[in-house]
Design a protein around this nucleic acid. Structure first.
Lengths: 196, 196
DNA sequence: GCGGTAACTTGAACGCGGTTCATTTGTGAG
DNA sequence: CTCACAAATGAACCGCGTTCAAGTTACCGC
């Protein structure tokens, strides 16, 4: 039987993660406060630590959801019939759109890892692997005689490039590129690849 | 006359920046502490705030130096006689080498902007402009009939791509790519561009 | 039901770290 | 030498994540 404690415990976890998700989406990771979360969830500050290791663990839970949504958005962006370069562009654009529409949550996805000292959790590496595998397929079609190791490198290189373009592009404080141009940058890079 | 106070003031600024530079290089931006800096510089904590607006201002001063060194490293990586793609690869590799050799200082260059709320200072935008102009030249050679606006986009796209590859590449917690492979990723992307 | 123990909840308190401020110390013109 | 003003000092303030002693609730064998 799921004891009453277990139920409450699970409900509290859920409330905390939802509150954190809302607050991250609204105010950004930097503005997340333990006391605010406790207030939202209707529990004492200390209760958080019965249910989660620390604040990072909550953010990690939020990141897990976000990563799933991101993966779905990318997966939904192509039907498999497009030529490889088209598909790469479609996926990249989906990545961009997701980052635009969920900037703060998307940024939390990477900001947390950059800061924390503890090892990256398995599900995180797996989620990235999942994204990579979407990219690997069209890349494989484009370069049939490339050996697997080099294909893997190319896959990561393309992901990193798109990620860099989107990251700096959305940080208009630094780059100052209007959003609609970001898509063109992606296209420029991706079409270059096709013409080896 | 430069009053005794003015001298001391300038010396303190210098000592603080040097201490911050050493500490960032050794322990990373996250471990920087006002009290440690005061200890290094042989002054009281409060004295820092007579001489700098806040801690960020010191980091900014460090970043200014780092950016200069980065620009020099990129500038020294080519002699102008190489074909455009070669030159792009040489500059990108120089960027990578600099980031490898000065990881924590290089990361501070971008981490600070991502966090702070106050506007990016002018010299920072200018330094980036400087880097961009190095890239713009070979790009212009590669695509003589491209209009200026698109050339600018391509320039930023290439910088962002390399930046993304280096960033994720050096964060081996996330990507797990051995350093010597990062250079190959850059080459893959850059040579793709050349064959439009 | 009943009592006892284990688990949960609570919020005040701790520790850390950036920043401030009343007080002390130093500077330089008259 | 003196006085007014500037600079230096470090204790104190405040915000915030985390902990903990004390109080409360849930669970189980009787």
């Amino acid at each position: 039987m799921a004891s009453k404690s277990q139920i409450r415990r699970e409900q509290l976890r859920e409330k905390l993660v939802e509150a954190a998700e809302r607050r991250i989406a609204r105010d950004g990771l930097n503005e997340l406060r333990a006391r605010d979360l406790a207030g939202d969830a209707g529990c004492a500050v200390g209760a958080i630590y019965n249910v989660f290791e620390d604040l990072n663990a909550i953010v990690m839970a939020v990141n897990g959801r976000t990563f799933l949504q991101l993966e779905q958005a990318v997966a939904a962006s192509f039907d498999g019939t497009e030529p490889p370069v088209q598909r790469l562009i479609a996926m990249s654009t989906a990545y961009l759109r997701f980052a635009e529409a969920n900037t703060r949550r998307w940024r939390a996805l990477f900001d947390l890892q950059m800061r924390a000292d503890d090892p990256v959790p398995d599900w995180y590496r797996d989620a990235l692997k999942g994204l990579f595998s979407y990219i690997a397929e069209p890349v494989g079609q484009l370069f049939p005689e490339m050996d697997p190791e080099e294909l893997d490198l190319m896959t990561r290189a393309l992901f990193s490039s798109v990620h860099g373009i989107v990251t700096l592009g959305l940080e208009n404080r630094i780059s100052g590129v209007p959003p609609e141009q970001i898509e063109r940058m992606i296209t420029q890079i991706m079409s270059g690849i096709g013409n080896k």
